[in-house]
Structure formats: structure tokens, C-alpha cells
Amino acid sequence: MITLTGTPTLRTERLTLRAPQPQDAPTFIEFYKTDRSQFVGGPMNDRQGWNFFCTEIGHWVMNGFGMFVVTYHDDDTPLGIVGHWYPNTWPEKEVGWVLFDAKHEGKGIAFEAARACIDHAWHTLKWDTIVSYIAHGNDASVALAERLGALRDETAEDPGKEAYVYRHPRPAA
């Protein structure tokens, strides 16, 4: 068996953020078959979803950081995927978020997970900047970015997709 080692686990009040594992693949792939994925690269078929899930895991190998699977502390069911994303061709490093199922919305899960990832990016990963790229029309994600304190940056380069760039302000030292 080949396992990923060296990935951190983050804990918030209600949530555990851990690296993706093979057993998360079916949930990820099912999400990417639905229209809910339209603002985050989908929808896509089984083959494309499987490839993308491999890329999610490989991202950790390439960069030493990546997207976390978010679960409640006492239940390993994947609620979504939130974390750090940086294909090395992109202009800036991103904190991104996806909730797999609409029934998990409205509970502050994405907010709580994203805030932990923003803290982790500043204080542990020592990033110089953090942005979130949000596809045009993804109003729920825009609202979350604003609740996190991010501001739209009209001058920043986007990574070649139709996206707003939301910039997270650096905390006072």
C-alpha cells in the first residue's frame, strides 16, 4: 500500500481538516458529476473526476500543501474540500472551498474551515499573499469571501479563467 505521509491535520471548533484519502474518491467524483460543481471546474464525468481527485492528492506531493477534506470531529464523512491550491503556473496562491452537498450549507462549515486555512497559510506556510479565485456567477462563494474579510482586487491577474480575484487582507503583525 502506498500512503501519503507528512500531511498536517487542522482542527477547528467543530471540524477536522485532513488530507484526502482514497476512500474519499467516490464522494468527490459524485459531486463533480452534479451541477453544483459548475463554478469549480465541473460538471465532469467519472473519468475526469477520478483524474481530478488524483490531482488533488498529487498537489500535496508537488507542493507540500493542498486541499483538505473537511469532516466533523466524530464522523469521517467528507463534507467538502477546503484548503490551499497552487498549480505552479498560477499567478498567486489560493485558499479555496467546496461543500459537496447543499444540506451542509448554511451552517458556517465552509467559513470555519476556510478561516483555519487562511490562518495556516499566513502563520505556518508563511505565504506572502492569499487570494480566492471565484467564478463569475458564484454568488454564494462571493458572499463567503466577503464574510472572511476578502476584498475584490480588480487589478490582479486571474489564472486564465473567468473569475473574480478576492484578496485576503494580511493580519496585523
Binding site: I2, T3, L4, P22, A25, W50, N51, F53, C54, T55, E56, I57, G58, H59, V61, M62, P87, N88, T89
Partner: peptide, 13 residues
């Protein structure tokens, strides 16, 4: 880049 990451992730899956 995504394809190279896929190569690594394939090992784990």
C-alpha cells in the same frame, strides 16, 4: 502541471 500531479496521485489511489 495537473497531469504530473495526477501521476503522483495515481500511486496513492
Amino acid at each position: 502541471w495537473r497531469s504530473l500531479a495526477l501521476e503522483a496521485g495515481h500511486w496513492v489511489l
